[in-house]
Design a protein around this nucleic acid. Structure first.
Lengths: 192, 192
DNA sequence: GTCTATACTTTGATAGAC
DNA sequence: GTCTATCAAAGTATAGAC
């Protein structure tokens, strides 16, 4: 084992934790497993995250940030807002099949207690995403932007679920086409 | 009080278990809680279900049966297959907001291990539903029935997720309208 | 002093015995 | 129906390596 400067301890812990949480679920992963995976001591983990709940919250916030970055990346590559919406769906379609679904959705399902911080953080994320998609839709010439944003969100939610269970050839395969149709229809309705 | 005839023991146990599982999640509910809810002895429960896993499987199979009955009920009330698809979405929209989402989806998220019986039962259900929706779509004059069935499934999945998190005024509010548009578009495409 | 590794305490669950 | 064996996991504390 090399020396331990460990300035990026937090990130390394989150890397290991996220990998395990994503694959096996939060409840199924014990703190000891994360420690074993890291090859570090218990002290270090509990120094950074004083409880499992806090670790889970950090994991969720990080997953939420990853989504933000996805949106930023898509918007940087694609010009028109209407194409950005479709491209977002395509991006999710590319990711979902290899995973167990959206980390935030899965963790939300694992923590039904409304008082639990993990529940609150994920719920907040869903509200943010909805507003974000509506905002994006408002930049298109859609007749009803809020409706369009909500429909894209519905498609993304369904895509995550279908894609992670039935795989890329399941119902998820139709998501991008559906998104395109939805965007087109809403813009056509405005042109009348 | 009459002696123990208990022909419906299984159902009574499942009633109590389903109620708790639906509201708090499977992992969060202990066998003792179910027993307390029933007011019965532990023996009785373990006589019917020799382990928690078996109880969970029975709970899932029962939830799957409930879905089948929903489909049957909708098909009995509504005539045309194209209307049946839309009505199914409307039915889910009516149920989802008061619940924590689809019991099968939630439990699936709680048991990521592919070897776990709960995982397998729920996965099987998703495959069945997909085939069922495609079959229904084949009875419509849709241009591409399989695509139509898949899109309805995607909408239902998204609806369950959105409806149970953001509530009936969230993105879920657009689901029925979207389903109607999708059905119409697919039938219009066939008329060309 | 900082990090690893391990032992220990407490809690809560399944499951079976009486 | 209560009582108990067993086990796993969250945290805490401590002993020891660099």
């Amino acid at each position: 084992m090399p020396r331990k400067p460990a300035p990026d301890t937090r990130e390394r812990i989150l890397d290991a934790a996220a990998d395990l949480f994503d694959r096996r679920g939060v409840h199924a992963v014990g703190m000891q497993q994360i420690i074993d995976e890291l090859g570090c001591g218990k002290q270090l983990l509990y120094r950074e995250f004083s409880s499992k709940d806090q670790l889970v919250v950090a994991y969720l916030e990080r997953s939420a940030r990853a989504w933000e970055q996805t949106v930023v990346a898509v918007c940087a590559v694609v010009d028109k807002p209407e194409d950005q919406l479709v491209e977002l769906v395509r991006t999710v379609q590319g990711m979902a099949p290899n995973t167990r679904g959206c980390p935030l959705r899965n963790t939300h399902a694992e923590f039904p207690d409304p008082d639990h911080p993990a529940h609150q953080v994920s719920l907040r994320h869903f509200q943010d995403v909805r507003e974000q998609l509506r905002e994006l839709a408002r930049q298109t010439p859609a007749a009803d932007p809020d409706k369009l944003g909500d429909r894209i969100m519905l498609i993304i939610d369904g895509l995550y679920v279908s894609g992670s269970t039935l795989g890329p050839t399941g119902a998820a395969a139709t998501a991008v086409g559906l998104a395109r149709d939805v965007v087109r229809a809403e813009i056509a309705a405005a042109a009348v």
